[in-house]
Amino acid sequence: KELVLVLYDYQEKSPREVTVKKGDILTLLNSTNKDWWKVEVDDRQGFIPAAYLKKL
């Protein structure tokens, strides 16, 4: 499984997104879309802008 580091706080703006904090380490589920990556946060799955994440 691939992990990503959150570079900036992000507040979800729709039900398909998730809220994260800078410094969080998340499981990356899908990065095929270059703009929005799907991650897992506390048993929730959702999207975050790829620019907010860095692969570890």
Rank of each mutant, 00 (worst) to 15 (best):
D35Y: 15
Y52A: 14
L56V: 12
L53R: 00
G46P: 03
V4R: 01
I48K: 00
N33P: 05
L28H: 01
L29E: 03
Q45R: 11
E40M: 11
E12A: 15
P49A: 03
R16F: 13
F47E: 05
A50I: 04
N33F: 09
V6I: 04
A51D: 12
N33S: 10
K13Q: 13
L53N: 00
E17Q: 11
V41P: 01
S31Q: 09
Y8P: 00
K13H: 09
T32W: 08
K1N: 12
K55D: 05
D42P: 07
E12Q: 14
D43I: 09
Y8R: 14
L56A: 04
N33M: 10
L26A: 10
Y52H: 14
V6W: 00
I25P: 00
D43T: 12
W37Q: 01
L5P: 00
E17N: 06
L29Y: 03
V4L: 04
Q45M: 10
K21L: 07
G23L: 02
T19P: 03
E17R: 04
N30L: 09
S14M: 08
F47W: 15
S31N: 08
F47D: 05
Q45T: 13
L26M: 04
A50F: 02
Y52F: 15
K38A: 09
L7R: 05
T27G: 09
V4P: 00
P49S: 03
L3Q: 11
V20W: 04
W36P: 00
Y52R: 05
K13D: 06
G46L: 10
K55G: 05
V39P: 00
V20L: 03
L56C: 10
W37K: 01
Y10E: 01
E2R: 10
Q45A: 12
K21D: 04
D24V: 07
V6C: 08
L5I: 14
E17M: 05
D9F: 03
V4D: 00
R44H: 08
T19W: 03
D42F: 14
R44N: 06
V41Q: 09
T19K: 05
A50D: 02
L56G: 02
L26E: 01
V39A: 02
D35G: 08
W36S: 04
L56I: 15
L3D: 04
K1S: 11
Y10P: 01
V6S: 02
E40V: 11
L3N: 06
T27V: 15
A51M: 15
W36D: 02
D35I: 13
K54V: 14
V6N: 00
L28E: 01
P15C: 09
L5G: 03
K1T: 11
I48V: 15
S14A: 09
Y8S: 11
Y10W: 08
V41H: 13
D9A: 07
D9G: 06
K38H: 12
K22D: 02
D35S: 11
D9I: 01
L26V: 13
D9C: 05
E40T: 08
D9M: 03
L28F: 02
P15F: 07
L3C: 11
R16Y: 14
T27H: 14
R44S: 06
Y10M: 01
G46N: 03
N33D: 15
E12Y: 06
Y8H: 14
P49F: 03
L53E: 00
A51P: 09
K54D: 07
L26R: 03
L26D: 00
V41T: 12
V18Q: 02
W36G: 02
K1W: 12
D9K: 03
W36I: 04
L56F: 09
L29N: 02
N33A: 09
F47V: 07
S14Y: 07
K13T: 11
K34A: 13
Y10C: 02
K54S: 11
K34E: 12
L3S: 08
L28S: 02
E12H: 10
T27R: 12
D43C: 14
K34S: 11
I48W: 01
L3T: 08
N30F: 06
Y10F: 06
D43E: 13
D9P: 07
T32Q: 12
